[in-house]
Design a binder for these strands. Structure first.
Lengths: 96, 96
DNA sequence: GTACATTTGACAAATATTGACAAATCACTT
DNA sequence: AAGTGATTTGTCAATATTTGTCAAATGTAC
C-alpha cells in the first residue's frame, strides 16, 4: 500500500538518478527519501508537487496516488475498510 | 462531514440521555463528548465500539461511519479527493 | 432571577511525526 | 578479500498533533 513511493522510485530509476540527487532537489536527507520511496515516511503535498515537476509528469497523477495512499493508510487493516470507502464516496458525492 | 457525531447525538437524544451520562459511561469529560458529537474531536476506535454496545446498535454501523469520517477528513478540500477515493477503492480490491 | 445542560477556550500531558545523523548493509569493481 | 559509492536501518531530539481536564461562558427552561 505504497503506490506513490513505488511510482517515484520507478520514475527516478527510469531517469538514472540517485537518491542523493533527487533528495538534494527536495532539500531533504537521502535516508529520508529512501524511506519515502519504501512507504516508511510520508511526503508533504509540496514535495509531491515538486517531484511532479522534476520528473515531468502530471501533478494530478502523483497527487492522486499520494491521497489514495493516505486514505488507505488511515483505514488499512480495518475489517470495514471497503464499506467505509463506499460510504465516504457516497458522502462526498452528496456534498457536491 | 461528521456523520458519526450526528448519529451519536441522535442516538443519545432518542434515549433521552444527557451528555453527562454518556460521557460517564465512556469515562471522559462531558465537554469532550460534546465536541465529539459536533465533530470537533475524534473518537478512538474503542470509544466507538463502547458506544455501539451502549446504544444497542451494530458495531459495524458506527465503525463504518467512524472510518468514513476519517477518510473524508484526510482528503477533504482536496481537488482530487474523488479521484483518490476511486483509486483507493481499486487498490484495496486488488490487494484482496 | 435560579438551576441545569451544553459549549467554548485555554491548558498540560501523552502520543505521534519529523528530519538529522551515524552505522550497517548491499552492489559492484578491482 | 578490500575498496567505493548507494541505499537502508536504527536512534535520537525537536516538533507537532492529539487527548482529556478545567473554568468560564452560553443556552434553555422554569
Amino acid at each position: 500500500m505504497n503506490s506513490l513511493g513505488e511510482r517515484i522510485r520507478k520514475l527516478r530509476e527510469s531517469k538514472s538518478l540517485l537518491l542523493r540527487q533527487v533528495a538534494a532537489y527536495l532539500e531533504i536527507d537521502t535516508a529520508l527519501l529512501s524511506k519515502m520511496e519504501r512507504g516508511e515516511r510520508k511526503l508533504t503535498r509540496d514535495q509531491v508537487v515538486a517531484l511532479s515537476k522534476h520528473f515531468g509528469v502530471e501533478e494530478k497523477d502523483l497527487l492522486t496516488l499520494w491521497l489514495s495512499d493516505k486514505i488507505l493508510n488511515s483505514v488499512k487493516d480495518d475489517k470495514y475498510a471497503a464499506l467505509a470507502l463506499n460510504k465516504a464516496t457516497e458522502l462526498l458525492i452528496n456534498k457536491a
